[in-house]
Design a protein around this nucleic acid. Structure first.
Lengths: 207, 207
DNA sequence: ACCTGAACACCGTTCAAGT
DNA sequence: ACCTGAACACCGTTCAAGT
């Protein structure tokens, strides 16, 4: 029996890249049906594998969720980075555009956004990829804040502190928006991007 | 058979105030064991009633969770109000104290805080108590912002917009704190309340 | 090394029946 | 009007066994 036949036979039983297939299927399920429908058994079924197969690659359900949310943070990072790269010429608008990209990500993938920031992981330290991707996102913002300070559009505080302020503002705004805690009397008065601009205004330098 | 005997007999089978007992037991379970352990069956068992009894008072699990989170918003409101009432004399510190009370609530009852702002309710409109208590909390902040503006410690923008900024800042800060997204290199540099003060600084008037 | 299938304990929800 | 108990479909997790 030639080697490739052996491989093909194996492929029917052994998936080959089951771990990544499970992450991808889980992400799709999350987008299509929401976090409530994200069960290990459904993810396994979607990939066409038995319900206990995931346990060969993930310690438990939380471990798969960690992988899925890590993928989400990775996508968010790509998006924010792309926004920064395509707005090099106008530093004054850069912060608003990045915040707007953040809002758009949350609005396009609300289930993803909610899961990423739901605090569902009990022991994040166990998931080094999750921690490093989270840190990369924060570092992106710290660097951005520093650039905006250099351009004179942000006040002159320690950049880490200012980054916490900016991130708190953006994340808080998006979270309250997602949970529909911002009253309609305000939302109806301004286009969303304009409300975002006004919300960020306190942190910007006047002029 | 006298009336009180009938009532007592009824009390063994009919709980009397099962609805509120379920909400209270659910809140306790949430505090003691976290959201993952908050099942309808456990709540029912804790009250000493069959697992299907809750369905006489709640449409489904989400409906009970709505009642529990509403109770949480009520507690938060009480706390913020008490902070405001006991700090009448120093408007410049009032905003920080209220934000600090918010942080403390989240730190003392993290499971409560997470559940309240997790966006777990799919159709909030169905729960008028939840909506009105949420609105009350926002109104508290709007009023506070207006008072701080009058005292000259907050910039002179439309008070609803400023309230969104302030709430976004505070809520974002607490959320990032809860999810441990704020790096230790920053958390270790300042006492938490000091970091909160610095985070809020952009929204305060200089001087 | 990777996957299956039976088994277990737990869940939300429904419904006929009891009080 | 309020509660019980059986029943159902679904879960996460474990484990012996298969490839």
């Amino acid at each position: 029996m030639p080697a490739y036949d052996y491989v093909m036979l194996k492929t029917q039983y052994h998936h080959g890249d089951l771990k990544n297939a499970l992450i991808k299927a889980g992400a799709e399920l999350l987008l299509e049906e929401g976090a409530r429908s994200l069960s290990l058994r459904k993810v396994a079924a979607k990939v066409g594998v038995s319900h206990s197969a995931p346990y060969a690659h993930f310690l438990d359900k939380e471990s798969l969720i960690a992988a899925i949310t890590t993928e989400g943070f990775h996508q968010l990072y790509q998006r924010l980075e792309a926004t920064i790269l395509s707005n090099q010429e106008r530093p004054s608008e850069l912060l608003l555009e990045v915040a707007w990209a953040y809002v758009q990500f949350a609005q396009e993938s609300p289930a993803f956004y909610k899961l990423m920031f739901s605090g569902i992981l009990e022991h994040e330290k166990i998931y080094p990829d999750f921690v490093s991707t989270s840190k990369a996102n924060f570092q992106l913002l710290v660097d951005l804040v520093q650039r905006c300070q250099s351009a004179g559009v942000l006040s002159d505080q320690p950049k880490e502190i200012l980054a916490v302020s900016v991130w708190s503002l953006v994340h808080g705004f998006v979270s309250l928006l997602m949970e529909r805690q911002i009253s309609h009397t305000i939302l109806d008065q301004y286009p969303l991007k304009e409300l975002l601009r006004k919300t960020l205004e306190p942190v910007m330098v006047a002029g």
